[in-house]
Design a protein around this nucleic acid. Structure first.
Length: 289
DNA sequence: ACCCAGGGGCAAG
DNA sequence: CTTGCCCATGGG
């Protein structure tokens, strides 16, 4: 295995924070893929150990160059954010392949992380290219998926999402939407371009901007983050619209809002369900805007 | 049995 | 610009 030095980094938290859905525990580390490379990865002795890909690919994928301390310094210093940071320190926002990220988030609508993983795996096994010798599959290309049928996608348990994923695959395969061009666009145009695809609205577009296009300001608002915003930052306010929360987040969390969002998301998810109201202690009230 | 899940889209107020 | 409803399916 190759040794890679990292700055602050927490591999398990990063892979289990709900931004990527195909890494599975393997020994003391994980087995998965970066693009079409099969990768085994472990974190021990203060370093990363990898097998299957060049160090440079891994550094890029895991964004080991993101200046975490600088990023943390931009976080608002309120109790909720502090609690999330203390819990999530070391999580990095990955640079995922765009299509793979886009496709999996199209299937994520109204689904739990567990089930997104299952659908993603079924899709890989059915249309993906086998890579390595360990039963791993690359995520299928838009062309490969576009050649499939809605019925076949429904067999992967996608339900009503099947039509959306198929439509998106066709639009990308035909060149109607150019994912490489999205990388060159400013944030607003990039978001609008992604939203042309079926099954892609504001939330999914923001996930793709954040997790694949390194737009670290993008702030996806899902049901979890919406709860956090309502309970902590809009406490007592009635009839707060999504658009208003979006504007608040952009201003309040700043240039690395996407990082803040991911930390709040993961912290909320991990501390929920243990006693129902035991987690309210760690977060006080905050100026509500 | 019931409820909700990392939403989107479209019609109707 | 907002609300209501449907879209399938699995897990708690």
């Amino acid at each position: 295995m190759i040794r890679i030095e990292t700055g602050e980094f927490n591999l398990p938290l990063t892979l289990e924070s709900g931004q990527v859905f195909h890494w599975r525990p393997h020994g003391v580390g994980y087995l998965g893929s970066i693009g079409d490379r099969p990768v085994r990865i472990e974190q021990r002795d203060g370093a990363l150990w990898i097998e299957g890909a060049e160090a440079e690919w891994v550094r890029h994928y895991f964004a080991l160059d993101h200046p975490l301390e600088e990023i943390y310094a931009t976080f608002p210093a309120d109790p909720a954010m502090n609690a999330a940071l203390a819990y999530c320190r070391g999580i990095r926002i990955l640079r995922q392949p765009a299509w793979e990220c886009l496709a999996t988030f199209i299937t994520s609508a109204m689904k739990q992380v567990k089930h997104i993983e299952q659908m993603s795996l079924a899709i890989r096994e059915r249309w993906g290219k086998p890579i390595g010798a360990s039963g791993l599959y690359a995520y299928p290309t838009p062309e490969a998926l576009a050649a499939g049928t809605e019925t076949e996608l429904r067999e992967c348990k996608l339900g009503f999402r099947a039509k959306n994923l198929l439509g998106a695959a066709r639009a990308v395969a035909s060149g109607e939407v150019d994912l490489a061009a999205v990388a060159t666009m400013d944030e607003e145009h990039a978001r609008a371009e992604l939203c042309k695809l079926p099954g892609v609205g504001e939330k999914v577009a923001n996930c793709v901007l954040l997790f694949a296009y390194e737009r670290l300001r993008a702030f996806p608002i899902d049901v979890w983050i919406e709860r956090v915003l309502r309970q902590i930052y809009f406490k007592g306010k009635r009839r707060v619209t999504l658009a208003r929360m979006q504007r608040f987040a952009a201003e309040y969390f700043g240039p690395y809002g996407g990082y803040a969002q991911q930390y709040l998301f993961h912290h909320a998810r991990r501390t929920e369900r243990r006693g129902k109201r035991g987690s309210d202690r760690s977060v006080g009230s905050v100026r509500s805007v």
